[in-house]
Amino acid sequence: MVGVNFKQSLHFFTNQLGSKLFLLFLIQWMVPTGMLQAQDDSTLLDLLEEPMVTPGSEKVHSAFKTTKVINQQSLELVDAGVFDFKMSHRFGPLNAGVDKAFGLDIATIRIGGEFGISPNLMLGFGRSNVKQEKNVDLFLKYRLMQQTTDNHQPLSILFLVAIDRRNTQYNVFNPTLGKTELLQIPNSARTGWVAQAIIGKKVSEELSLQFVPGWVTQSTIQPQLASNALEGDLATRTLSHWYLGVGMRQKLTTRTTLNLDFIPILTNKGSTINSFSLGFDIETGGHVFQLQFTNSFGLNESLFIARTTDRWNQAGIRLGFNLSRVFTVINPEVYR
């Protein structure tokens, strides 16, 4: 009986289940068998093919060499705990003529700094002497989304809010009192605001591209007019614009890039000229040196976006440079 049963079950096994089991074995063991052969000494490395860090899911860094394309802010932030000393300088326009050494006699300077508060938030500030306006500016730049190598996040998106204040005091002649006195200018007329998004992508190791839709409002004080005006009737002009900036960089070598920075104003343009700049980034260790040609004199957002008056086609081109030097203030391990 037992023998018969065994034969029967074996028969059943081979006929009914056999082919299925065979397939099962085939599927289950063919793969490891292949790997067994691959276990030959030189390919032990293959066992490590599954990396612990998936290179596909990393954040994309270094879309630009520094936090500025030329004038406009770039997709980059200063790293958390790092202070970036910034100095910008613009000569006068080429068309200032031989009398002013084609602009070399004129110099506007901004000295400032940027500090990485957290990996996605940066604070910046500066003081500039543009047009004797004693301009102080302050801004916050926040990264909402950072591009990843696997394109799960195909873009980087940042926001910038900037405020600046002109601290110049103007003396005007008061005919009623018969003497000069300080012109009283309300804060609103001294203040400029900028709010913008920075949306862009490191397209390849060489090419990065960004678009900067934004809004700017600022006032122009005209003291010459004000002094003639009746008391309380201050000659200020407030203008608001929408704009769409474009920034681009193309690597020339590992440490040098060609940059383009164009900020066309979309609304309420009036006599304002669009800011257009071409420049080079040269990186050496902790420094980034930016050399540029631009038609803007302003060194903070509201000025170069909304108050550019020179034209490229009239040789209203200024030579300028930005200098960036980073200092690690807080050990990066704190933020890991």
Binding site: D41, L45, L48, M52, V53, P55, V82, V326, T328
Partner: peptide, 28 residues
């Protein structure tokens, strides 16, 4: 984050190092 393997039977040794995982004292 270095992956490494060693087979005492065949005396084979292998390392795979993700280069981006090197951490410096300066982010830049």
């Amino acid at each position: 984050q270095v992956t490494a393997a060693f087979s005492p039977k065949t005396n084979a040794i292998a390392f795979r190092v993700p280069v981006n995982a090197f951490q410096f004292k300066s982010a830049l």
